[in-house]
Design a protein around this nucleic acid. Structure first.
Length: 993
DNA sequence: CACTTCTAATCCGCTGGAGACAG
DNA sequence: CCTGTCTCCAGCGGATTAGAAGT
């Protein structure tokens, strides 16, 4: 039993290291209890009552089916190869810029979102790069047959910038420029109105153009208006291109302008756009303006479930807990997962549910001033503005923090009590980390501390099953070969990957052969790789797969249940008395290493891991997990409560690295660090102006190191680049800001920079951005006298950069800028929500989410079936439209008493006017929905929204937005996200990042 | 070292079309 | 014969997992 409260960890004030374990911020303002609602709930009673106070709204959708059981076959990837992946990720080429500007008339169609709108259709062609993922592993694949893929090459990054881009007005030369800042829409108004229906239907936005994707060209049977097309131009391009490129062809600009209303939208939004890091300023303005109704400063606790009422402690506890944890609560019991029927959304929404009306207020403001700023280069603006710290900005926070505390304490206490209730072991809840208040002046006290938990119990890890020889003989020079099980196992690993790109890569084959050869032994019949034919094994594998697939549902279910039964005990850990889900409790199965991109180690044998390789971390008083493999034992058992891992082993591929077993994302330990991450990013808000003015000042510093830091910081801030650590020879050749090489950045007169490099995971970052003159000049200087292959920032590395950043703000590192810019962008863009119903609002959200994804360069490959799917939709749309026309004719005739016409198949149509009218309405609705679906689909074909949602956008922004707009949270967060972000569910509707 | 971030692969429920059948 | 309803099933896409790659 232990220490209850003590569990709390304190952290010292040291600086936080970003990644570092110890770093934690304090979360002052969070509303207390709410914080950790997550995970764990011990099972005990989960009363359904939890319903908590709030729930009101209707629940939404179907029950997420959710697979409660997580398990799933974990087939080792190694074995199932399948999938042909294609490499191409990016979108098509074309350049487009997003056009800004809006015509007044625009309706709010924004549905489609600015994205589409923004995109310019007309842009003229542009560079087309082909594989997006260049170096990536994929690359070699010859182009996929699939048409879609090929084209899109334009990187995400580009698109981003466009957002800002050129002003409508400027026709001229500006066009030539690429990107940025310049533009701003003039008219704000157009936008604001929204028609009721909006969006969806309005396909009007015609996308005039033809689809860019090369292949697509397939006939699009139907109508022209399918919304989707227009954007294509943009969309096809790699994200990065989208925004920035605007100007690439001057002509296009203008034309674009004309395009759809979307522009307006864009315009509006634009200011906030990802590309403008400065958006926060707007924010500030807005904040001031704000709110009608609810005062922003509600005490944190206010939303909390009415625990206030007096009740027996126990009951109180329960309530608090439940309401907070709600979603997850029940989960603990395995079975329960599914049950959380209570939609979080309800709870959430209910709390606040006020119509969102207010939103717009701010808008105007924004448009007018905000926009202006945009034209001004960021730096300049900054410079102009006072260098002073903007603390004022965050009015909301402060109040919260103070009040929040006490509440928090309460909660904590409650929790402790609750613990007792549950008899789960002793322990206390860890929840209690202490929270230090943030000082009002912006200096925050950073709490830190090493202790992460007080008690920790778990069952260790589960190992993949031993290899089962199949006995299928591969061929060597046409003849069947006998292999020992060990040899066969490795051969099978390779055989199974036949239809992946890896199978054709020289490096992969070479590494595989080098690792397999010794297993075969010097005297083996197989002397070389060339004579090997793995087809028989491959066929066997495919047959097995087929067999598995064709099992009856009952069999599948049985298998699944059996697996679950075996794994169940490994799925949970008890941390400070609370049952928490474990993240990956399965040891990675042996296989061939699948490095991304042109990884030098791809194809190497990833050996099987045994207990002797594994170090277990468990509470001192807890039982040591039993070693599941008879006759083996753990390498070591530790009791280190300063770390959160439950186990780790050395990565067999990169022996210097480790693989860890952590708690799941929904655990409170993770939730807490997640929150701290966002709090740190929010803290940056108070320093950002100062930082910007500082680096702007140093653009022309005579000290080269200083200059490089200034420029690098600028790039990280503006473009959300990653830090760019140094990498070893045996790692993929990818870069980030600090590791950019001379050839990765090209200066484009008069003052633009073109970035083209492979970033994390070998995802291409291709973007052209207009920068301040000083930056442009500085980059030229940095390149001077250097050859390709040399570091652009030779006086800089990530540790120097981060050290510098830490001097400015405690705990600040390069990656914080990504979180900050992503969240502030989302927050700002969401202020422009104009949708009139849930569907439209969700579309608005997606649009904002998309901007963030573009900013972060989160790409995804266009699905192979994308174009055919779009065609199908289009033809359906055409059919529906024709039907509409026919129905109207019929209605007309019916009213005049004329007999109905016959349809194309000779059948009589018709009916009475009422029926017809009803059908017409239905059809119209269907068309609207289709148009919206199509546009969204097309819009998102190259953008992955998930990553930013999971890692970069403060969930409280989303939750608050849902509350303000009465959108059920389930519309934007799936079950996993709801669990992961349970700590954010109780924010007040007025929360601003 | 420890932990976060990311894309690809895989899983799995939902949607909607086809066919059978009833009214 | 026509229309509506229900079941079955394939395909689509969102949800999850895996595990690589960053910080």
């Amino acid at each position: 039993m232990a220490s209850n409260s003590s569990a709390v960890v304190q952290r010292k004030g040291h600086s936080l290291d970003p990644g570092g374990p110890g770093s934690k911020l304090q979360m002052d303002h969070l509303g207390t209890s709410e914080r950790y609602s997550n995970s764990s709930r011990i099972m005990e009673e989960e009363d359904e009552e939890d319903e908590q106070p709030l729930r009101i709204i209707r629940s939404v959708r179907r029950g997420d089916g959710g697979g409660g059981s997580t398990s799933a076959a974990g087939s080792s990837r190694g074995l199932n190869g399948s999938a042909s992946s294609n490499g191409v990720k990016g979108g098509s080429a074309g350049v487009s810029g997003r056009k800004v500007e809006g015509d007044a008339g625009a309706d709010k169609k924004r549905l489609l979102g600015e994205l589409r709108a923004g995109s310019n259709v007309g842009s003229s062609g542009t560079p087309v790069t082909k594989k997006v993922k260049v170096g990536a592993g994929v690359e070699s694949k010859k182009k996929e047959p699939d048409p879609d893929e090929d084209d899109d090459d334009v990187p995400l990054a580009q698109r981003i910038n466009n957002a800002k881009k050129t002003p409508p007005n400027t026709s001229t030369a500006s066009a030539a420029k690429k990107i940025q800042d310049t533009s701003k829409p003039e008219k704000a108004d157009g936008l604001s109105n929204h028609s009721s229906s909006n969006g969806p239907a309005s396909p009007p936005m015609s996308r005039a153009t033809t689809p860019k994707e090369g292949q697509d060209k397939k006939t699009r049977p139907t109508t022209g208006n399918s919304v989707p097309e227009c954007d294509d131009s943009d969309d096809d391009k790699p994200l990065s291109h989208r925004k920035s490129q605007v100007g690439s062809n001057g002509a296009s600009k203008e034309s674009k302008t004309v395009m759809k209303d979307a522009k307006d939208i864009t315009a509006k939004k634009r200011p906030a756009g990802p590309s403008n890091p400065t958006s926060d300023r707007h924010l500030e303005k807005k904040l001031k303006v704000v709110p009608t109704g609810q005062s922003s400063s509600k005490p944190p606790g206010s939303h909390a479930p009415k625990s206030g009422s007096l009740q027996s402690p126990k009951s109180m506890v329960k309530k608090e807990v439940t309401s907070l944890e709600k979603g997850t609560h029940k989960k603990n019991h395995e079975g329960d997962d599914d049950d959380d029927d209570v939609p979080l959304a309800q709870r959430i929404t209910s709390g606040s549910s006020k119509p969102a009306v207010q939103k717009k207020a701010a808008k105007v403001d924004k448009d007018s001033d905000g926009e202006d700023d945009d034209d001004v280069p960021l730096a300049r603006r900054l410079a102009a503005s006072t260098p002073v710290k903007p603390k004022a900005v965050t009015p909301l926070k402060k109040p919260l923090s103070s009040s929040g505390k006490s509440a928090t304490k309460k909660v904590l206490e409650l929790r402790k009590k609750s613990k007792k209730v549950t008899n789960v072991t002793s322990v206390t809840k860890k929840t209690t980390k202490t929270i230090t208040p943030r000082k009002s002046n912006g200096n925050q006290v950073i709490s830190g501390g090493a202790q992460k938990w007080t008690t920790l119990e778990h069952n260790g890890v589960i190992f993949p099953p031993a290899y089962q020889p199949h006995g299928v003989k591969m061929l060597y020079k046409g003849k069947p070969v006998d292999l020992t099980p060990e040899q066969e196992e490795v051969a099978t690993m390779f055989a199974v990957m036949k239809d992946t790109d890896y199978a054709t890569k020289t490096k992969f084959i070479e590494n595989f052969w080098n690792d397999w050869k010794p297993i075969l032994g010097a005297k083996h019949v197989i002397r070389d790789f060339e004579g090997c034919d793995f087809t028989p094994i491959y066929n066997w594998h495919m047959a097995e797969k087929e067999k598995k697939k064709s099992m009856t549902p009952e069999e599948k279910k049985r298998v699944k249940e059996e697996k679950l039964k075996v794994e169940e005990k490994y799925m949970w850990a008890v941390v400070d008395g609370v049952k928490e889900k474990v993240g990956n409790f399965r040891v990675e199965p042996p296989g061939l290493f699948r490095g991304r991109g042109e990884h030098p180690k791809m194809g190497k044998l990833k050996a099987r891991i045994y207990p002797e390789h594994i170090v277990i971390n468990v509470g001192e008083d807890a039982p040591v997990p039993e070693c599941p493999m008879p006759g083996h034992k753990w390498k070591e058992v530790r009791h280190d409560n300063t770390v959160t891992w439950l186990a780790f082993w050395n990565d067999p591929i990169n022996t210097k690295e480790f693989k860890y077993v952590f708690l799941a994302a929904s655990s409170s330990l993770k939730g807490q660090s997640d929150m701290e991450k966002y709090e740190k990013a929010r803290m940056l808000k108070d320093y950002i102006e100062n930082i910007r003015s500082t680096y702007t000042r140093n653009f022309s510093s005579s000290d080269m190191a200083k200059r490089q830091i200034a420029v690098a910081t600028y790039l990280i801030d503006r473009l959300a680049l990653r830090a760019g650590n140094e990498k070893d020879e045996d790692e993929a050749d990818t870069v980030g800001c600090c590791s950019l090489k001379v050839e990765h950045v090209t200066t484009v007169a008069p003052r633009s920079l073109q970035f083209d490099f492979l970033g994390k995971d070998s995802i291409r970052y291709f973007n052209t951005v207009e920068v301040e003159d000083q930056v442009y000049k500085a980059i030229k200087d940095f390149k001077k006298g250097k050859q390709n292959g040399q570091d652009l920032f030779d006086k800089l590395d990530t540790s120097k950069l981060n050290a510098h950043l830490k001097d400015i703000m405690p705990g600040l590192t390069a990656k914080v800028f990504r979180t900050y810019n992503a969240s502030i962008t989302l927050d700002t863009l969401l202020q422009d929500t104009v949708g009139s119903n849930v569907i439209e609002k969700s579309a608005d959200y997606q649009r904002a989410n998309k901007e963030v994804a573009i900013l972060c360069n989160h790409q995804r490959t266009i699905s192979k079936s994308h174009s055919s799917q779009m065609e199908k939709l289009e033809s359906k749309m055409a059919e529906a439209k024709q039907l509409l026309v026919d129905l109207k004719v019929d209605l007309d005739r019916a009213r005049k008493g004329k007999p109905p016409l016959t349809d194309s198949e000779g059948k009589k149509r018709g009916g009475n006017p009422e029926t017809l009218q009803k059908k017409i309405a239905q059809t119209e609705q269907r068309i609207e929905k289709m148009a919206l679906d199509m546009s969204i689909k097309d819009d998102l074909k190259t953008v992955a929204l998930g990553t930013s949602k999971i890692n970069y956008m403060d969930p409280r922004i989303t939750v608050a937005w849902c509350k303000r707009h009465d959108v059920p949270i389930e519309k934007v967060f799936n079950k996993s996200l709801l669990a992961k972000f349970s700590w954010a569910m109780n924010v007040e509707p007025e929360y601003r990042f």
